[in-house]
């Protein structure tokens, strides 16, 4: 589903090496946590995956599609196959829960009938079916992140990428979000979770890739994450 082959990313002009010769594969349906200290290139890896930035070296394929040198006008099609969630939920404050999710479908030209069908569906998956008309400021952080996840799921992506989704949430709420991600994974979506929360990742008991200084230092099927 996702293949990184010797991927390096160097930021000029400082020549910061964000990723150094990173190679890994993610199979369809996997749940992979990517962990590491701050500044080790986790977000850079996510950005290469969503074509927000390009690898300096190496090859990246998503679902068999080589996106290493993806064309600008093809990027939207890539992003419709990858749902992304961030630490700051990136919701539109002037739109309700329902409108925030529907917006994602409207702007990619979905039919109204499809929007009417899918929006309640994904909001049900994240457990917000009774808060459709709330505005983001009237939701807790965890609920806001659920809306963001619902929006990421709206166009039926094969992959869900979450970059520090629990970074702004307390431990209890973080657990709930992880549980939700596991549930989404169970439905069949490949999930890539980026985090530096040791205990959170260790509880998942799934594959863990550890990055340090832009290099993969460990990749274990049922991994535990240790910060040395």
């Amino acid at each position: 589903m996702i293949n990184f082959r010797g991927v390096s990313k160097i930021f000029y002009p400082e020549r910061t090496i964000a990723l150094a010769n990173v190679t890994f594969d993610v199979a369809p349906g996997e749940f992979v946590s990517i962990v590491g200290k701050s500044g080790t290139g986790k977000t850079t890896l996510v950005k290469i995956l969503t074509a927000e930035t390009r690898a300096t070296e190496g090859q990246v394929t998503v679902g068999g599609w080589d996106i290493t040198r993806i064309r600008h006008r093809e990027i939207p099609y890539l992003r419709r196959q990858i749902g992304v969630v961030f630490q700051d939920f990136k919701l539109l404050p002037k739109k309700t829960v329902l409108e925030n999710v529907a917006f994602a479908l409207q702007v990619i030209g979905a039919r109204p009938s499809r929007i009417r069908r899918i929006v309640p569906e994904v909001l049900k998956i994240v457990g917000l079916e009774d808060k459709l008309d709330r505005f983001p400021i009237h939701l807790s952080g965890g609920e806001q992140q659920r809306v963001a996840i619902a929006r990421a799921l709206a166009h039926g992506p094969k992959i869900l990428v979450a970059d520090e989704p629990t970074g702004n949430l307390d431990a209890m709420t973080s657990q709930e979000i992880i549980a939700l991600l596991l549930k989404i994974n169970q439905i069949g979506t490949t999930v890539l979770l980026v985090s530096h929360d040791q205990s959170l990742v260790n509880h998942i008991r799934r594959r863990v890739i550890v990055l340090d200084d832009g290099k993969i230092v460990s990749d274990q099927a049922v991994g535990r994450y240790r910060l040395e």
């Binding site: 969503t50 600008h72 006008r73 990027i75 939207p76 099609y77 890539l78 992003r79 419709r80 992304v84 990136k90 539109l92 917006f103 994602a104 702007v107 990619i108 030209g109 929006r151 990421a152 709206a154 166009h155």
Partner: peptide, 16 residues
Amino acid sequence: EEIAIMKLVGASNAII
């Protein structure tokens, strides 16, 4: 913000 979200969810530049 709206534009960033549109980009994020895969709206084409023309539509944005």
